[in-house]
C-alpha cells in the first residue's frame, strides 16, 4: 500500500465510490416512486448529449460535454412526459420509445461526424475508463499534503466530489418534502409542497449525478448504482432514513470491491490483464442485491401486496 497504490489506484477508487454514492442517493427515491428506470433512460441519452456538444463546439472539453449530456437528460425527461401525456401511453413504453430513439440518434451522429482521433466512442460511453484516471504526480501518501501534486489531481475526481457533495446536501436539505411527496403526493400538495417541482428536481439531480459519473465510469455503473444499492437497502430495513444509509454503504462497498476484483482478481487467478472495473462494480452490486434478496431481514412483502 505505498506509492504505487496512491498513484494508480487511489483516485479511481475514490471516483468510483463518489460516483456510486451520488447515483445511489437519488436512486432511493426513484425506486420508491416506481421510476427506477428513469436512471436507465437518462444514462442512455447521455451519449447523444455529448455527441451534440462535440459537434457544436468542436472540442472534447469537459464543460460543454457535461452541459450537452445534462441537456439531453432534460430533453429525454420532457420527451417521456410528452409521450406519456399527449399519447396516453403507459410510462414504461413511453420511456422505451424516447431513450432508444435518442440513443439511436446519438450513434448515428457519432458515425456520421468525423470523430476519428478524438477520444469519443460508444464503448467509452458505455463503460467509461475508470482505470485511466490515475494521479500521475503522486509519489506516495505524502503527496496528499503536496500542493503541486494536488493541483494535478484528475479533474474527474474534483468534479465527482463536488457533485456527490452537492447531491448529499440537497438530499438532506429537501429531505422532508422529498419523503412526504414520495409517500403521499396528494397530501403533500395539500400541505403546500410543490410536488411537481420536487419530482422534476429529483430527476434533474439524478441526471446531474448520471452525467458527472458517466464520463468517469460509463453508463453501466450509473444504471446499476441507481438501482442495485437502494434496492438491496430497501430489503435491509423498514425506515427510509436507515435505508439511505445502507444504500450509501452498499454503493461504496460495490465500488471498492468491484475495483479491487477487476484490478487484482485476474492476477490472483493467474491471468495477467485486469478486466473492466465498471463492469465488475456493476457485477458486485448485483451480487450484493442477490444476497439481499435471499437473506435480508425485510425482503418479503408484509400486509397486502401492492395495488390492492
Amino acid at each position: 500500500m505505498g506509492a504505487e497504490f496512491v498513484q494508480l489506484s487511489l483516485t479511481p477508487l475514490l471516483i468510483g465510490v463518489l460516483a456510486a454514492i451520488a447515483c445511489a442517493l437519488p436512486g432511493n427515491f426513484l425506486i420508491l416512486r416506481r421510476q427506477a428506470l428513469i436512471g436507465d433512460a437518462i444514462s442512455h441519452v447521455v451519449l447523444p448529449g455529448i455527441v451534440v456538444a462535440f459537434l457544436v463546439t468542436g472540442v472534447t472539453a469537459t464543460w460543454p460535454m457535461l452541459l450537452g449530456a445534462a441537456g439531453a437528460a432534460v430533453v429525454a425527461v420532457i420527451l417521456i412526459e410528452a409521450i406519456k401525456r399527449l399519447g396516453r401511453i403507459e410510462p414504461g413504453a413511453a420511456m422505451g420509445v424516447a431513450f432508444t430513439s435518442l440513443f439511436a440518434a446519438g450513434v448515428l451522429l457519432l458515425e456520421q461526424s468525423d470523430t476519428s482521433g478524438v477520444h469519443l466512442d460508444v464503448q467509452h460511453a458505455l463503460y467509461g475508463n475508470l482505470e485511466s484516471l490515475i494521479w500521475f504526480q503522486a509519489e506516495g501518501w505524502h503527496s496528499l499534503a503536496d500542493p503541486v501534486a494536488l493541483a494535478a489531481l484528475p479533474p474527474e475526481l474534483v468534479r465527482m466530489a463536488v457533485t456527490a457533495a452537492a447531491i448529499a446536501l440537497l438530499t438532506a436539505f429537501f429531505w422532508r418534502p422529498l419523503k412526504l411527496s414520495t409517500f403521499d403526493e396528494g397530501f403533500a400538495g395539500a400541505v403546500g409542497i410543490p410536488t411537481a417541482a420536487v419530482s422534476l428536481g429529483l430527476v434533474i439531480a439524478a441526471a446531474v449525478a448520471a452525467v458527472a459519473a458517466f464520463d468517469a465510469v460509463g453508463s453501466i455503473i450509473v444504471i446499476a448504482m441507481f438501482i442495485c444499492p437502494p434496492a438491496a437497502a430497501r430489503l435491509m430495513t423498514n425506515r427510509l432514513e436507515v435505508q439511505v444509509l445502507w444504500s450509501v454503504a452498499f454503493a461504496a462497498l460495490s465500488a471498492i470491491l468491484g475495483y479491487v476484483l477487476a484490478g487484482y482478481g485476474p492476477l490472483w487467478l493467474g491471468a495477467d490483464n485486469a478486466v473492466s472495473a465498471a463492469g465488475m462494480i456493476a457485477t458486485v452490486s448485483g451480487l450484493i442485491l442477490a444476497l439481499a434478496c435471499l437473506f435480508a431481514p425485510h425482503r418479503a412483502r408484509i400486509g397486502a401486496p401492492k395495488g390492492v
Binding site: Q35, I223, A224, A231, R299
Partner: peptide, 22 residues
C-alpha cells in the same frame, strides 16, 4: 421480494450487462 418489477428490470439489465462487459 418486495421489490417492484421496474426495480427488477433495472437491476437485471445493468448487472448482466456489466458482467457481459467484464
Amino acid at each position: 421480494t418486495r421489490l417492484a418489477e421496474d426495480v427488477a428490470i433495472g437491476a437485471v439489465l445493468s448487472v448482466f450487462f456489466g458482467f457481459g462487459i467484464v
